[in-house]
Nucleic acid binder design. Structure first.
Length: 426
RNA sequence: GGACAGAUGGCCGAGUGGUCGAAGGCACCUGACUCGAAAUCAGGCAUACCGGCAACGGUAUCGUAGGUUCGAAUCCUACUCUGUCCGCCA
């Protein structure tokens, strides 16, 4: 959520920058409501002050003059009900304003390129090179099925489309990847959290998934409404909901492994084959809580922490800076990590690292005290995938495949697989 | 699922319908004392919004939402959450 006062103060500039995003919205109503609210607010406060003063008199009359008390009581009753009416209108206005504010996206950082589509994203750097395969590389699902370790048909029977069973060594590889990533991040100063996979509406609103993107989420049936997390970002960011952190304890860095659940509404027909786009997948997430002045540097560092996993796995990839049109709702700036998939002959997103400014902190009420005795203020949040485990598995299957259908296991993962050096057909 | 208990400031914890933005304590800040520190003493110390250069003044906030009342932290109702015990279960 944006700061209402900032929006009111720099209205033109904010509107202009929001126009650069896709599907920008009209903010004139916000401006009008803000002005109206201010007038009404002053009015209500004045009336309340009068009532409070009158009540002081009542206190005295109660002792000295019971008769005058009775007549004054009638008058004050009218005053009180008048105030209540105005208060109700004010509440209504505020709710309307709040509702509008909740669906306004974050303002892109000045360093974010303006663009009209993902074609305007900028490649910032590239690591490694495309593997030199002396045969026509297969796509990961062909590799997996040939190995007899990937079963979409049975998954469809059990759960429908966009689910998969992994079998044997491939299932173990998925677990190994997650453990490897977590171990690496813990070594780099991230604290591991194992979060709840079901969260409240409030938590989903705190990080920005709601109210605007409810159709993307799975939620529980029945009167006990809970949402399946689309990413560990939601529980981990809300870990500090409504808290004031001591400045000396910043930055706080967490990593978390979790399954992620996504309805994938509106992506019908996209990536229908394979493991790229699933209703359920595993991800290791990095989340940071930092001082505002440190968030830009923290984004660079967090992105590097995520990219480092790809480097250790020897996977060729590039880092792109998303343009204004391609950024997520809550983000001020986002780097995507795109891994090379020889089977697809394409770079595919495997991590998305964002800085949110105080946008999430304002929604989730996360503050810090800069120094003892100083006033609490909103901190900045960041997060990024480190990495999407399923897509990493895809990248390994495609990049490490051999002509005979076996798949080499990257050195760094072998200790997690009992020394296994390759996947071989069963 | 059943039975109780509770929800107050950064933390702990008092609170009779008006004298309560809220005692007291802890933590923290300033000053005094001290060579310095500890201890002690004095003062300060919630958040948000509005007005003001400022001092300061006003308004709201005691889990959430309603209600009663001239007036609610205090009374009533519902809800949420937490704790304890019992049952059930991985």
């Amino acid at each position: 959520m944006l700061d209402q006062r900032e929006v009111a103060k720099n209205f033109e500039a904010v509107v202009a920058r929001l126009q650069d995003r896709k599907g920008s919205l009209d903010l004139t109503e916000v401006k009008t409501l803000f002005a109206e609210r201010k007038v009404l607010h002053v009015e209500v406060e004045g009336l309340q002050a009068k009532r409070n003063a009158a009540n002081e008199e009542m206190k005295k009359l109660a002792k000295s003059d019971p008769k005058a008390l009775e007549s004054a009581r009638g008058e004050l009753k009218a005053v009180s009900s008048g105030i209540k009416e105005k208060e109700a209108r004010l509440t209504e206005l505020e709710e309307k304003l709040e509702k509008l504010m909740l669906v306004i996206p974050n303002v892109p950082h000045a360093s974010v390129p303006t663009g009209a589509s993902e074609a305007d994203n900028q490649v910032v750097r590239t690591w490694g090179e495309k593997p030199n395969l002396l045969f026509t590389p297969r796509q990961h699902f062909e590799v997996g099925e040939k190995l007899g370790m990937l079963d979409f048909e049975r998954a469809a029977k059990v759960s429908g489309s966009r689910f998969a069973f992994l079998k044997g060594p491939l299932a173990r590889l998925e677990r190994a990847l997650a453990s490897f990533m977590i171990d690496q991040h813990v070594q780099r100063g991230y604290e591991e959290l194992l979060p709840p996979y079901l969260v409240t509406r409030q938590s989903m609103t705190g990080t920005g998934q709601l109210p605007k993107f409810e159709e993307d989420a799975f939620k529980t049936a029945g009167e006990h409404e809970l949402f399946l997390i689309p990413t560990a970002e939601v529980p981990v960011t809300n870990f500090h909901h409504d808290e004031i952190l001591e400045g000396a304890t910043l930055p706080r860095k967490y990593c978390a492994f979790s399954p992620c659940f996504r309805a994938e509404a509106g992506s019908a027909g996209k990536d229908t084959r394979g493991l790229i786009r699933m209703h359920q997948f595993h991800k290791v997430e990095l989340v940071q809580f930092v001082r505002p002045e440190e968030s830009q540097a923290a984004l660079e560092a967090l992105t590097a922490d995520a990219a480092r996993i790809l480097e250790l796995l020897g996977l060729h990839h590039r880092v792109t800076l998303l343009c204004t049109a391609d950024m997520g709702f809550a983000s001020t700036k986002t780097y995507d990590l795109e891994v090379w998939l020889p089977g697809q002959q394409a770079y595919r997103e495997i991590s998305s690292c964002s800085s949110f400014g105080d946008f999430q902190a304002r929604r989730a009420k996360i503050r810090f005290r800069p120094a003892q005795g100083e006033k609490p203020q909103l901190l900045h949040t960041l997060n990024g995938s480190g990495l999407a485990v399923g897509r990493t598995l895809v990248a390994i299957l495609e990049n490490y495949q051999r002509e005979d259908g076996t798949v080499a296991i990257p050195e760094v993962l072998r200790p997690y697989l009992g020394g296994l050096d390759a996947l071989r057909p069963v």
